[in-house]
Write a protein that binds this DNA or RNA. Structure first.
Lengths: 322, 322
DNA sequence: GTTTGCATTTTAGAAGCTTAAAATGCAAAC
DNA sequence: GTTTGCATTTTAAGCTTCTAAAATGCAAAC
């Protein structure tokens, strides 16, 4: 609805909205420009535009020469939050990934082709390509143009990522600077609790993946060592792009969730050694489950050999995942 | 000397030169355009320009309608290699790092300022900033401009990187896809041998760092798991930017080199378990040596507290490192 | 039939200009 | 003195044009 609002302005509007929802800004509170600017680390201009946005939504009211005040209209807040969420465009990154996986893009592409196809400007495209290159999806050719790399021949790449996580995640829990983030822990604890209910929710494999990843990111994120945090993020980002044949064993989900909850308990109790041991076992378990699912005993040693097309046992349905 | 040659052309010239030096292209061999284009994954244009460059240097000779031939002039080859090395400009990245560490750049900077100061175009600057951001040196401010992050308060960051390496490097040696790269191994073996001579060369701390890093990168690089390889590269890149007070204990260098050589032996013999154990001990050793040097027993638990300025024991001389 | 030499086409980076949007300054209102 | 409301300045992204350089096509030479 807003006539024109930059992503930054919308982001700030969302954050203010969140503060209102959290009770930090009660109904009637004055929304002071300088104060908000400081809090959100921007100047007063985008703040003012965000407030205009919130005024339009009925969340804030303008009083002449006194600035904006919180109205306290819950319904309006919800509506505003909704519309502010919708406004964000998906990055071409995901669409390119999907098209490539579906075979709609050739091995070699030029920036020109991509810019035209996805209707993005050069700079934006470059950012996306850089990110893909970092994730080893694509690489720059020596002259010009880009080459899609053999898409993570999935079974092997997946196994590699698990071995990597096995090396770093338990170690992260043993970092001397480890500090539990109570808020984040509470949030993932809530999610995991849902999964161990007598009647667990039916989740798509995407949702399962999200919840699981969030859990692991949260416990690693508290380790205070940026090397571990970043490494973990990278491994997950890449893993996220490939999903195997829907893996829909509710028993296994619940078992994993039980282990996750136990891990939260141990970390909150400061029993890091024990947590690390459990995490190691836990990752091994998951890996094993997946490996069985994929019939990895027949997996060739080298990653670039292919299974004969007739042998469909352990075949993957590689689907883009978002 | 060359009137104009792109970085790509120079790179290709270097590679052809390397092939000649390695005997792959003996004196008198014809340098066929299409063949070289295929080998270096480019079209025939940059190949031709590279050959012209080599002709100017006296390494190749042109025969009318028969293309270029290797002359076999060793002296010319050496001279050419030399001049092709010199031609490469240092990226602004390093200079920005140096200036920031020396306090010649403020906490907040705009792209405009940097582009003017370092005489680079917007695109190049952007690339450099992106890289710095990935290495957690700098971050984009919400509105515009960039903020330098509190420079890796060195003692803590260094310790963090060692703990990270301790988690990944030994694990990399145990990867199932580990394959020794004989050529690369031979090269680092030669470097390490030099250090254990009765009269070892006097090395600057930079050179010591380079040789050490190359060693670790090489043994990790053979693991076949891109997650480990990339993580290791990142940790080293960041570590590279900070150097402590020149650490000049020749005995310690030699001891480390002995361990490095032992590691190469074990890996070549396929004794990965043992190699991983030794590497773990080795990294612990280095960390300990450095920690003693820094008086880390007095190091506060949290990374952002500062040592009292009066206490200079274990103080660091943070110097840019290149 | 291969390979070269050169002309032509295509690509992506650079330079300059325009513009949306963020930062800043300041008088007026409280 | 604070805070607002608005004008002004500054920044960086977008757009257009231009250009260096890589890719490609093809006739001629062997």
């Amino acid at each position: 609805m807003a006539p024109s609002s930059s992503p930054l302005v919308r982001r700030i509007a969302r954050r203010i909205l969140a503060d209102i929802a959290a009770g930090l800004l009660p109904p009637g509170a004055r929304l002071k420009g300088a104060e908000l600017a400081l809090r959100h680390d921007v100047s007063r201009s985008p703040i003012e535009r965000a407030l205009l946005l919130l005024e339009q939504a009925g969340v804030a009211a303008r009083e002449p020469n006194r600035g904006f005040v919180v109205t306290g209209d819950r319904a309006a807040s919800l509506r505003a939050a909704q519309s502010l969420m919708e406004t964000d465009a998906a990055p071409p990154y995901l669409q390119i990934a999907a098209d490539r996986l579906a075979g709609r893009l050739p091995e070699f592409v030029t920036e020109r082709l991509l810019a035209g196809r996805y209707r993005v400007t050069g700079a934006v495209l470059r950012q996306n390509l850089t990110r893909m290159a970092q994730e080893r999806w694509i690489e720059r050719r020596p002259g010009y143009g880009w080459r899609f790399l053999p898409v993570l021949d999935s079974a092997e790449a997946h196994a590699a990522s698990y071995r990597f996580r096995l090396a770093i995640e338990p170690a992260a829990l043993l970092e001397p600077g480890y500090r539990v983030d109570a808020t984040a822990f509470a949030k993932v604890r809530g999610e995991q609790m849902e999964l161990v209910q007598p009647r667990p929710p039916r989740l798509t494999s995407n949702e399962w993946f999200d919840i699981g990843t969030r859990f692991h990111a949260t416990i690693v994120g508290c380790c205070g060592n940026p090397f571990f945090i970043e490494a973990s993020q990278r491994a997950n980002r890449l893993r996220r792009l490939i999903v195997y044949r829907p893996f829909d064993d509710t028993r296994a989900f619940a078992a994993a969730a039980h282990e996750h909850l136990k891990l939260l308990d141990l970390l909150e109790a400061g029993r890091h050694e024990q947590a690390a041991r459990l995490l190691r076992v836990h990752l091994e378990d998951i890996r094993q489950v997946k490996a069985d699912l994929l019939g990895s005993e027949a997996r060739p040693a080298s990653g670039d050999r292919r299974r004969k097309s007739g042998d469909r046992r352990g075949e993957l349905d590689v689907v883009p995942h978002f």
